[in-house]
Simulated scan of single mutants.
Amino acid sequence: MDFKLTDEQRDFVAAIRDFSEREAGTQEKREALTEGYKLHHNFDVYKKMADLGWLGVTIPEEYGGSGGSYLDASLFLEETARGMCPIGGYGTTLIVAGAVQRFGTDDQKHKILGGIASGAVEAIAMTEPEAGSDVGNLSTKAERTSDNGGGYVINGQKVFISNAHISDHVLVVCRTTKGESKHEGLSMIFVPKDNPGMEMTPIDTMGGRDTNT
């Protein structure tokens, strides 16, 4: 198996490296871009990357991306980290993009994936006070409602939800039905960040306020 990068991938790496050195690249620049290291994501830098087509590297062309691979995304992450670019919102966005590509409707793909390619940040909410990496233990529930044209009413609490405060939507993992096992009956529901009833409380961490409850 040949593990060498293609010429196109090498050019991609070189372009990201040049951009990162120009836009960030030093402790002084990163400090200025993050308000003294208080922030982990700079939307101005992120939008420039979107305009270059880099944020949609794994998104199919029909939804506004470039149709690349996760290796391409890894190269992007490696070089932007090396160049100290403050784009902390990309990690959770990449996770959400993968979920939408696999399970989303065509409308969701156009809206969410198209938004990501244009510079939107997305978050996913799994962890709860009493449920960590094993989502089968979560207690957040969603019940059908006929109010406001139908939909779901979600009740529960999530914690340590990275990038929720800067996201367009939060993809909430919740229980919609009861199954024979604890891992059955789970669903993922997109909730707009400004949806009535959703409250966020910042959690101070060593890396800044990039996580919420």
Rank of each mutant, 00 (worst) to 15 (best):
G56Y: 04
R144A: 15
N195Q: 15
W54T: 00
F3M: 05
E184L: 08
G67Q: 09
L94M: 12
K29V: 10
T105E: 01
A14S: 02
S118D: 13
D168R: 13
T176H: 14
M188V: 14
G53T: 05
T140N: 08
I189Y: 09
N212D: 07
K47R: 07
N212E: 05
I124Q: 06
E143M: 15
I203R: 08
G132Y: 15
T205E: 09
G91F: 14
T177Q: 12
T201M: 08
R17Q: 00
V173W: 09
D134Q: 12
V135N: 06
E184N: 12
M198S: 07
D204I: 10
G150L: 02
D44M: 06
T93L: 01
R175S: 13
A123S: 14
M1C: 07
P192I: 05
N163S: 15
N137G: 13
G91L: 14
T201K: 12
A131I: 07
G25W: 04
D51N: 15
G185K: 13
H169A: 11
E180Q: 13
E31A: 13
N155E: 15
R22H: 07
P60T: 00
K48W: 00
R30P: 04
V191M: 09
A99Q: 13
R17S: 00
E199Q: 10
M188A: 15
R209M: 07
S20N: 01
G185V: 11
L71H: 06
D134V: 11
G208V: 05
P192T: 02
I161M: 14
A164W: 14
F190Q: 07
E128P: 03
K178Y: 10
T93R: 04
F190S: 13
P202G: 06
E21S: 02
R102Y: 11
I59K: 08
S118W: 00
S162E: 13
R144I: 14
L75T: 00
N137R: 15
D18P: 00
D107V: 12
D134S: 08
S118H: 03
G136H: 02
A99I: 15
A117F: 04
D11E: 14
F190R: 10
G89F: 09
Y46T: 03
Y46C: 03
A81C: 12
L113I: 07
T80V: 05
D18M: 00
S74E: 03
T213V: 14
R102F: 09
E28C: 01
R175I: 10
K47H: 01
S66H: 06
P192Y: 03
E61W: 04
H40Y: 05
T58R: 00
V121H: 06
L113R: 06
E180F: 11
I203H: 05
E143T: 15
A125Y: 11
I95H: 02
T26S: 03
D194W: 10
P202T: 05
T145V: 04
M200L: 15
K158V: 09
T26Q: 03
N163M: 13
L75G: 00
G56S: 05
Q101C: 01
H40E: 10
Q101G: 03
G151R: 04
T127E: 07
S162T: 15
